[in-house]
Simulated assay, not measured.
Amino acid sequence: MFWGRVPVLLAALFVSASAVDAQEFKLEEVPSVTTVAPARLKPKTIVFSDHRDDKLADAGTGLIRFEDWGRERPLQKQFLSLFPGYVEPTIKVSVHGIPKSYTEKLHIYVVEARFPIEKAPGAIDLARYTRIDVLEKIDPSIKHRRITADETAPEADPQSAYNRHPGRRWCEAPGSLCIESRYPLEGKLPVGIRLANKLEEGGKKISEFMEFQTEIRVLPPEEIDRLALAKLTGVETPVAGVLEQTIFHVNQVMQFGKLLAVLQEHPSDPNRTIATVFMALAVETDVLERKKEFESVPVLRNLIPAQVLMGKSSFNSGNSISAGLPDYVRNRIRAIAEGFGQ
Rank of each mutant, 00 (worst) to 15 (best):
A39S: 15
T130A: 15
V87I: 13
K119D: 03
E72L: 07
P116F: 11
L56F: 03
Y129K: 15
L13S: 01
S32N: 15
A39P: 01
R71E: 09
T103E: 04
K100H: 01
K100T: 01
F66Q: 03
K100D: 00
V111P: 06
D68H: 01
F48Y: 15
V87T: 15
I108A: 04
Q76H: 12
G122T: 09
W69V: 01
F83W: 13
G62E: 07
V36M: 04
R71Y: 07
K42H: 12
V33T: 04
V30P: 08
E29I: 13
L126N: 14
K119S: 10
V110I: 05
A37I: 06
T34L: 04
I108C: 05
A37Y: 10
L41H: 04
R65Q: 05
Y129P: 02
Y109D: 05
F83D: 08
A22H: 08
H107L: 03
D21V: 11
A17I: 04
V30A: 07
T90N: 03
F25H: 15
D125N: 15
S81R: 04
L41N: 06
P74E: 03
V30Y: 06
R65H: 05
A123E: 15
E104W: 00
D133M: 08
F115D: 10
E104H: 00
V30Q: 08
D133N: 13
I91F: 00
Q23R: 14
D133Q: 12
H51Q: 11
A17Y: 10
R128V: 15
Y109I: 04
V20R: 11
G60C: 03
E24T: 12
E28M: 14
A37M: 06
G62Y: 11
K55M: 03
A11F: 02
S18Q: 09
A57H: 04
S81V: 03
P89R: 02
I98E: 00
D21F: 12
L126P: 14
L82C: 08
L56N: 04
I46L: 08
L106Y: 05
R73N: 02
T45A: 12
E104L: 00
A39I: 11
F66H: 05
L126I: 15
I132T: 02
Q23S: 13
S32R: 13
S94I: 01
G62C: 13
K77W: 06
H107Y: 05
F79H: 09
D53N: 14
L13C: 02
R40N: 12
P84L: 12
A127W: 10
L27I: 15
L56P: 02
A11Y: 00
K105L: 01
T90M: 08
L82Y: 13
G62W: 09
L75E: 03
P74R: 09
